[in-house]
Design a protein around this nucleic acid. Structure first.
Length: 112
DNA sequence: CCCTTGACTATCT
DNA sequence: GAGATAGCCAAGG
């Protein structure tokens, strides 16, 4: 087991694994959904060592840009995978079916 | 124990 | 809208 399994990870794993295809989620959103409101950086740190099974490419920044440097190899890999999921790009930003807050409701139900 | 670093975020200029 | 700042938590040197 790698460092991914440290402390809070199991929930993060679940949340990330449950991101629907064609949708993306921000680090902070994942952290919050997993029950760790301020752990966006920890999520990112863990994602860096995540197993292949995790759909890491569905994880983006809060502004919906990719976390990698624009044009880098990782960036292109992620963008390509996202495109395969049907996600389009608006320059550096990904375009999803809607905003990420509806994803929150998809996962946890319309609580409001 | 102090400092740096990191797939972050919100806020201010 | 882009760049700079401050807050944030954990891990490693």
């Amino acid at each position: 087991m790698n460092r991914f399994q440290a402390k809070f990870d199991p929930r993060v794993w679940e949340v990330v694994a449950n991101i629907p295809a064609g949708q993306v989620m921000a680090y902070g959103e994942i952290a919050r959904a997993a029950g760790f409101p301020r752990y966006s950086r920890m999520v990112g740190a863990s994602m860096g060592r995540c197993p292949d099974a995790l759909p890491w490419f569905r994880v983006v920044r809060s502004d919906r840009t990719l976390a990698f440097e624009y044009g880098s190899e990782s960036y292109r890999e992620q963008s390509q995978l996202l495109k395969q999921e049907g996600i389009l790009f608006d320059g550096k930003k990904v375009i999803t079916a809607d905003t990420d807050d509806n994803l929150d409701k998809m996962l946890w139900g319309p609580s409001d």
